[in-house]
Amino acid sequence: MGKTSIRNNIRRLRFEAKEMTQAELAEKVGVTRQTLNAIEAAKYSPTLELAFKIAKVFGVPLDAVFQYE
């Protein structure tokens, strides 16, 4: 499970959302902090459902969070 071809802006979006921590975001979307860290580092590709949940927390469309390269 090296780097995936899916880029993401989670780190920037967290920063813009009053510096939300990984643990806070993880709790909101129902995963562990470790899973969220792996997604943020592009080492794990989330399911479509989890990707939508993350986008919903930030109130942005899916492609504002994840981009396929």
């Binding site: 129902g30 995963v31 562990t32 470790q34 899973t35 792996a38 794990y44 989890l50």
Partner: peptide, 8 residues
């Protein structure tokens, strides 16, 4: 202890 997530 936390619930298993999709990665688990």
């Amino acid at each position: 202890p936390v619930k298993k997530d999709e990665r688990d």
